[in-house]
């Protein structure tokens, strides 16, 4: 890997991630504002964005937040929601073979849905270099932590985030990310199963179980819809 390749990979990473980092700003502002409404100090909210750095788990934490903080429940909710990282890491591992272990262990701190989705797309054409990964990885925590601090500081001044539709930015961002995984009928089955199971469990049992129920339902539906190994060999047609 030459210096030239490194800087080209860095530029490619920044080019891929910047729109996502921009989109993370309003979401981080909302997180900060909601955290301060829940009684967290601006320092505490900012620290959470820095140390946890996982939007879905952080919003879920606010939903179940009480004083004093229910540490075990928070840990469990965080584990359920972030368990998906285990599968992302398993999928990325063979595509990051060029990185020494210390670089991987450091780089993985910045693993997010967004950085992962971009890296997987990159891996379709070339291996993921440390330069590319860090370029993709580093802008997002900057935007996320900074926006959290500002949102928490301005929390009271901003008023209800719903007035600006900012609470919906997270949902819109995820819909755009889901669209990137669209592969036709097989994806539709996953979306319907995961959405239905998540919504039903959210209404009946509650947070954070909707994440694990929806994820498992979507994965199970995909497995059931896929012909078994034997019939797949005979039938080589694919979804569009």
């Amino acid at each position: 890997m030459t210096l030239h390749d490194d800087s080209r990979d860095t530029r490619a990473g920044f080019a891929d991630i910047w729109p996502i980092a921009v989109a993370a700003v309003p979401i981080g502002l909302v997180f900060g504002a909601l955290a301060s409404a829940k009684g967290l100090s601006p320092l505490e909210a900012t620290l959470m964005s820095l140390l946890v750095f996982a939007g879905g788990a952080q919003f879920a934490a606010l939903e179940i937040w009480t004083t004093p903080a229910p540490i075990l429940l928070l840990a469990f909710s965080t584990l359920l929601i972030n368990a998906r990282h285990i599968l992302m890491g398993a999928s990325l591992a063979p595509k990051m073979k060029t990185m020494p272990l210390p670089q991987r262990l450091f780089g993985l701190y910045f693993l997010t849905d967004e950085a992962w989705a971009l890296a997987e797309r990159r891996a379709l054409t070339k291996p993921i270099s440390f330069s590319y990964w860090m370029a993709v990885a580093i802008l997002l925590p900057g935007a996320w932590v900074g926006a959290t601090a500002i949102g928490a500081g301005l929390g009271a001044l901003l008023g209800d985030p719903k007035r600006f539709g900012a609470d919906f930015a997270f949902t819109a961002l995820f819909i755009a990310l889901i669209a990137a995984f669209w592969k036709g009928r097989s994806t539709a089955i996953v979306i319907v199963a995961a959405g239905a199971a998540s919504a039903i469990v959210y209404r009946t049992i509650g947070t954070p179980w909707h994440v694990v129920a929806g994820a498992l339902a979507g994965i199970a539906a995909a497995a059931l819809a896929q012909p078994s190994a034997n019939s797949a060999e005979k039938n080589t047609s694919h979804d569009d």
Binding site: F174, I178, A194, A199, Y202, G218, A223, Q226
Partner: peptide, 24 residues
């Protein structure tokens, strides 16, 4: 193939599960 399909379904399934309460 079945395990691969399940594996490929993880990202959309998780992303949908996270936003379904708001969206639906």
């Amino acid at each position: 193939p079945r395990a691969q399909a399940a594996f490929d379904a993880i990202p959309p399934a998780v992303l949908v599960a996270v936003i379904a309460p708001t969206a639906l």
